[in-house]
Design a binder for these strands. Sequence first.
DNA 1: CGTTTGATTGACACGAGTCAACACCAGTGG
DNA 2: CCACTGGTGTTGACTCGTGTCAATCAAACG
Lengths: 243, 243
Amino acid sequence: MDNPLIRKLAVATELKDKDRAVLERLCRHRRAVGAKQDLYQQGDRPEIVHLVMEGVAVRYKMMPGGRRQIMAVLLPGDFCDLHVSILDEMDHGIATITPCIIVDIPAASVHELTAYHPCIAHALHWVALVDMAVLREWLASHGRRNSIKRMAHFFCEMLIRLQTVGLADENSYSMPLRQNDFADIFGITSIHANRIIQSLREDGLVILERRHLTIFDVDKLKALCSFDASYLHLTRRKSISKR
Amino acid sequence: MDNPLIRKLAVATELKDKDRAVLERLCRHRRAVGAKQDLYQQGDRPEIVHLVMEGVAVRYKMMPGGRRQIMAVLLPGDFCDLHVSILDEMDHGIATITPCIIVDIPAASVHELTAYHPCIAHALHWVALVDMAVLREWLASHGRRNSIKRMAHFFCEMLIRLQTVGLADENSYSMPLRQNDFADIFGITSIHANRIIQSLREDGLVILERRHLTIFDVDKLKALCSFDASYLHLTRRKSISKR
DNA sequence: CGTTTGATTGACACGAGTCAACACCAGTGG
DNA sequence: CCACTGGTGTTGACTCGTGTCAATCAAACG
């Protein structure tokens, strides 16, 4: 019973046994969703929070002209839209890439959690802020890194995020995204995505085959895109005492 | 006494007179900051939340190679980093563009606000989610709009955001950003920014002179970039009853 | 008044998009 | 067993958006 949500939240806070039990209970009712299904569509009135337990999903927007922009990749342990019930309607959709195991959480349960379990409340708060930090880093990537570096940076980010939930080893992980999806992440065409992946392989940095990514030299890849993991905020803040 | 923070929060929630009074009190101690000053620097340990009362500031990241990426434009009524005290350190900086009037708010005051004033808590929550929605829209803009549309979209966004705090009229507003800043917002060079602004002017869409932007035909500009303001979530959610 | 900062222009290089074609594989159904 | 299919990956030739460098101009400022 290795719960990715608990693994992730434990990075932010010291979780007590009681907190862990509460979280386990929260994740009890799971359901399977097929690949390429919408969990939310743009315009939906969100009432239920989704949590990914297994599989990969993406947050995306359809742009005029029928092109898609992916704005986040959701891995096991990630919430789809933690506090979204505050807003009137979804300004984006969420779709699965692979078949997924999903937990549906009513907005009310999230309120309870935050009201009665301060540690969990703190951890959820941290999750929301990290999501935002990742979004900022992606924006910076789009603005100021060319597509090779953008892709290298993304592969580094995935490595670390998957490692924290125990789904990547030292230098490789399963990568179910297609070149089409990469294109929608990086804001390029799939043809160009193809060329970039080839060039990364030719430079002996990364190989992507049969839905599995292997990084030959992690440090070299990080150096290429000057990857600095601090935006993922995986180090616990020392001075909580002051609160 | 027209408080931009109150104007903005009133969009999200019905504020009671008591709430307004609390917010007014919160904004009492203001200080002036010159143009081009850092409020935070990357790496700082954030303890104090800043609120912009007058002027314009930006959230930015310095990228390797000395280029800057701006990730948000902060207008009167905007918080610089509402909940950032949860994180270990700032992954970005905040700098003023114009001289600003700033309110410093200790993290503890924010906690009190949310603990004792449910309406304000709700409104602050809404603010955080809208900030995130804007960030997502910017990411989509970077990925899937060319620089002309990106700029047009930005001008539309600024128009609406400034209107909600009473700082823009029907089709024009003060625009203190330089072409250099535009470049750092859109992830292009200032030379290219210059060409885009010219082309928008030649097409009779927008004119930018002496730090003031005038949109000749708002609908035409919106049509150009297929602007849809719903991501700003300015319509109040109907069914709060259910909570 | 000179100095600095910001805006503008032109020539050229390069990254990325477009279109069209083809290869490859896993299913699918005949 | 084979032919057909649709999704995916690959390639090449050409176009277009954007970056680069260098120079000049205009305006703001102390």
